[in-house]
Simulated assay, not measured.
Amino acid sequence: LVAIIFPQIYGVGYETINDALWGRNVRWVLAILIGAKILATAATLGSGGSGGIFAPSLFIGAMLGCLIGEQVHLMLPEMTAPPGAYALVGMGALVAGTTHAPISAILIIFELTNDYHIIPPLMVSCIISVLIATYFKKESIYTEKLVRRGLNIYEGRDINILRALRVKEIVNTDVEKITGDSSFTDLIRCMIRSQHQEYFVVNENDELLGTISILELKEFLQEEEYLSGLVIAADIAHPPPAYLYLEDNLDLAMHHFGRFNVDELPVLASEDNRRLIGSIRRKDVIDAYNREIFKWDLAGGMHSVVTAASKERQIELAEGYSLVEIDPPDGFIGKSIKQLNIRARYGVEVILIRKPLDDQKGIPNRPGAIPSPDYVIQPGDRLLVMGEK
């Protein structure tokens, strides 16, 4: 709708930018186009539409620079450059601020003009733009997308992995719940029959009131007869040192585990709903981290292992298992893997089949092809097999 009224903002807007560089737009048009382009870009990207940031940054920077240039040139016509020069500097400044890349912005604008006189004001404006932008927002328009996905290029890979995982993925719903009005005798009976180390005290709506550990209960065992008629679960329970929500990431969970030196934390539904969903343990977080590391390393690690395996070299995968490349016996030629029944007869698994490089059906620069049961072994093939030593 905005583009219907102001067609200049439609698309990348290079024609309008060119008009600004030559000072062809009037001031009120420049001011309107700045707001219209910001509104259209935000609406397009915010609604999930297709669009970029670089071209709108050039457009807005050119309009803003030209607008300021016209005002300054109007007041000091003999001492200032024409509005087109301000438009160039504005383009570079806005691109540098949005991308946090001042050197790239300087080089791009210089390549557009091939004029050394534009370099000093361009450098000053780009540096000031980046300083102001980073003061208010650490991330650029590009790295912000990665941060929202749990990836931070300024931090280690370990933290990135934990931030990409959510509590809801590993929450344990098998927890021991105790109502707040349960007697001390009921607590002891629950401790005897349960294998849990932590007990969660809830009200009638399953909202968390506090926690009781098995170590705390053991301290009161000697006074069981005295306390059985006087104390209820709500009297002994204490607020947990911290709690987590389903949408929290595991980096926050590990932070709480390390800060409060606990092994289990309660998990609530949300900030508005304190209903107890389950718990999360330190061991669960470590296991999830190890599984994710394995997924990340599987592709690269297996590629390295498969590539390293050769006829002269065995690669040990795990205790008692190896990966080795062999030439198929003459009796294998012309028969399918299903006919040979290699797994049942020889106790090995055919992982890949390397074909000769001059074979047009081969896959050059790759470790090999994954065979199907109906694949017929051809002369020149080499089998990459895995099995016990």
Score class of each variant (00 low, 15 high):
3 A>I: 12
6 F>T: 05
7 P>M: 09
10 Y>P: 00
13 G>C: 02
18 N>Y: 03
19 D>V: 00
19 D>C: 06
20 A>D: 02
21 L>S: 01
22 W>G: 05
25 N>K: 15
27 R>T: 15
27 R>G: 00
30 L>H: 05
36 A>V: 03
36 A>F: 05
49 G>K: 07
49 G>I: 07
53 I>R: 09
54 F>E: 06
54 F>K: 01
61 G>K: 11
62 A>Y: 07
65 G>V: 08
65 G>L: 02
66 C>D: 02
67 L>A: 05
68 I>D: 01
69 G>F: 02
70 E>M: 12
74 L>W: 07
84 G>R: 04
89 V>S: 02
94 L>N: 03
95 V>C: 08
101 A>C: 07
101 A>R: 06
102 P>N: 11
105 A>M: 11
106 I>C: 01
106 I>W: 03
109 I>T: 10
113 T>P: 04
114 N>G: 00
117 H>C: 04
117 H>I: 00
124 V>I: 15
127 I>N: 01
133 A>Y: 08
138 K>L: 07
141 I>N: 00
146 L>C: 09
158 D>W: 01
160 N>Y: 06
160 N>I: 05
169 E>C: 02
173 T>E: 10
176 E>H: 12
177 K>V: 06
179 T>E: 08
181 D>H: 12
188 I>F: 07
190 C>E: 13
194 S>M: 13
196 H>R: 15
198 E>C: 09
201 V>Q: 03
203 N>A: 05
205 N>Y: 08
206 D>I: 14
213 S>L: 08
214 I>H: 08
216 E>Y: 04
222 Q>S: 08
227 L>R: 04
230 L>P: 00
231 V>K: 08
240 P>T: 10
246 L>P: 10
246 L>M: 14
253 A>E: 07
258 G>Q: 11
259 R>K: 15
261 N>F: 10
265 L>A: 02
266 P>W: 13
270 S>R: 09
275 R>L: 06
277 I>H: 08
280 I>W: 05
281 R>G: 14
283 K>L: 13
284 D>V: 12
289 Y>H: 09
291 R>H: 10
292 E>H: 09
293 I>C: 06
296 W>H: 13
299 A>S: 12
300 G>N: 13
308 A>C: 02
310 S>F: 07
316 E>Y: 09
323 L>R: 11
327 D>V: 15
329 P>N: 03
332 F>W: 15
347 G>Q: 10
348 V>T: 03
352 L>Q: 10
353 I>T: 10
355 K>E: 10
355 K>F: 02
356 P>A: 10
358 D>Y: 06
362 G>W: 10
362 G>N: 13
363 I>R: 07
378 Q>V: 09
378 Q>M: 11
378 Q>H: 08
381 D>F: 12
384 L>K: 07
388 E>A: 10
389 K>I: 11
